[in-house]
Structure formats: C-alpha cells, structure tokens
C-alpha cells in the first residue's frame, strides 16, 4: 500500500507556473490615458519652470508701477542679483545667477519626494507599473530600498522647509494689497498671489507627513486628544492631496506667468477697488 507518512500539510508554493495569458495586460480600456496625461502635464510644467527660473527677469512688479508683486518662483529673493525692491532683509550678495535657482530647491525637493508625485512619476515616467495590472517595464525592481530612492524618506524635511516658504509667500500675498503710492486696495495680482498661497497651504497641510506628524503617529487617539483633533482636521484635506498637488502646481506656474506678463508690460494689473 502506498502510504506516505506525514507527507504534506496544506503545501506552500511561493513560486510556480502562472496561469492566464502571457502578455503584459489583458485590459482593453484606455489604461494608457492616465500615464500619458500625467506625463504631459508634468513635462510641460518642468519645461516652463526651468525656463522661468533661468530667464532671471520680469519676476517683480515694484513701486514704479504702484504694485508689490513677486513671482513665487523668485520669492524670497535672496540673491545679490535680485532687482531692487524685491529683496527681503537677508541678501546673499555673492549669488549673481538667477535667484530662483536658490530657492526652487525646496519646492522641487518637496514635490519630488511627495508621496503623490512619486506615484505619478513612477507610473507615468518610470512605467513601474504604467497602470494597474499592466506589466512593469523593468526587468528587476528594488523599490525604494536602495540609493538613490531610499532618499525619498527625507520628505518630512522638505515639508518643514516648505512650510517656511509658505509663510513667505503668504507675506508676499498680504503685502501685495498695499499698492505703493496708492494705498490699500485689491488688484487682480494680489488675488492671484492670495489664491496661490492658499493652494500651497492646502497642498502642504494635506501632506502625508503632515498628517503623520499631526497625530497619525500616536498609538492611541484617546490618550492624545489635541493631536487627535489636529489629525481629524488634516485627514479630510489629505484625502484631496492629489487634487491640491495638481491645482497648486498649475496655479504656481500661472501666478509666475501673470507676474511676468505684468512685469514685462504685456498686460496691466487691473485694480478692482
């Protein structure tokens, strides 16, 4: 009699021949649309931002025009090369190339390590994977476990720096309501700067690191009522992080464009009241 003593308990197979068709995907819907749109928008932004950062002009509308509008790409304007009036108090007078390069590091690093943008570019640029149930374009994969991608873990530090920038851009927006030589008033430009600042705050506050630091990291909410309240406040924002990421990205470019058009004299900044 062929009896096997204690042969197997529910056998465990980790590897083995797979079923289903051997092709990258069976999906018939337009799964490629999402990565293509993402890639297009991100590329357009990068191209515009690079150009805007390097042109090093038309980023400030000053007292001569009875305005105080600065492009978010150039604020705070720390370089010695900054146009008169655009300086805050600290000036790095040695820095003579575009001031934008100095400070764009922060939003760039913040967005590059953002959990949402990571998802977006891993999918649309790195094709890892291009979409769900569509094969990864790479032969091997180690995720975020090795250099350089392990550096994504510094996101939290960019978040802190981003907060400082948000404060500065908020001040920029506030002071733009004071039009030199005219007085307090509302212009389209000041509204644009305000919306930009608000969107940036929404983006930062909805950040996953922010949610974690507010209260996500505690084991028991009941024992930390204040942190629970903070967490409760940012959690609904966090659910819209993707929307804020796109809205703030597009709007920051539009804000720069607006200031640029006014500064170059192409349009005038209309005063509402």
């Amino acid at each position: 009699m062929a009896t096997v003593e204690k042969a197997t308990v529910s056998p465990v197979t980790i590897g083995g021949t797979r079923g289903g068709p051997d092709q990258p995907t069976v999906r018939k819907d337009r799964w490629w649309l999402q990565p293509v749109v993402t890639a297009t928008v991100l590329t357009s932004f990068v191209v515009y931002a690079t150009w805007a950062a390097f042109v090093n002009k038309d980023y400030y509308v000053g007292a001569t025009e009875h305005r105080d509008l600065i492009s978010p790409f150039y604020s705070p304007c720390l370089a010695g090369s900054c146009v008169p009036g655009s300086h805050p108090h600290i000036v790095l007078s040695q820095w003579m190339i575009s001031p934008a390069i100095l400070i764009l590091i922060v939003p760039l690093g913040f967005r590059l390590t953002c959990y949402y943008y990571r998802r977006a570019y891993y999918r649309s640029f790195w094709l890892s994977p291009p979409n769900c149930a569509v094969a990864d374009a790479h032969g091997s994969y180690s995720g975020e476990t090795r250099f350089p991608l392990i550096l994504q873990n510094v996101h939290r530090w960019f978040f802190y720096l981003g907060l400082i920038l948000n404060v500065i851009l908020t001040i920029d927006a506030v002071v733009s309501y004071n039009q030199p030589g005219i007085g307090i008033g509302v212009t389209v430009g000041s509204l644009v700067l305000t919306v930009n600042a608000v969107l940036l705050w929404c983006y930062s506050l909805s950040c996953h690191s922010c949610r974690h630091l507010c209260g996500g990291q505690v084991r028991s909410f009941a024992k930390h009522p204040i942190r629970y309240r903070l967490w409760k406040f940012v959690t609904p924002l966090n659910a819209h992080h993707m929307n804020f990421a796109w809205a703030s990205l597009v709007f920051v470019a539009l804000t720069d464009l607006y200031v640029r058009l006014v500064a170059s004299g192409t349009i005038t900044d209309f005063r509402l009241f």
Binding site: M1, A2, T3, V4, K6, A7, T8, V9
Partner: peptide, 9 residues
C-alpha cells in the same frame, strides 16, 4: 490498492 497519504494526530 488505492493510493493515499496518512497523517496521525
């Protein structure tokens, strides 16, 4: 003879 595995518990 049928083939089978045996487990004792």
């Amino acid at each position: 003879m049928p083939e089978y595995e045996t487990h004792r518990y």
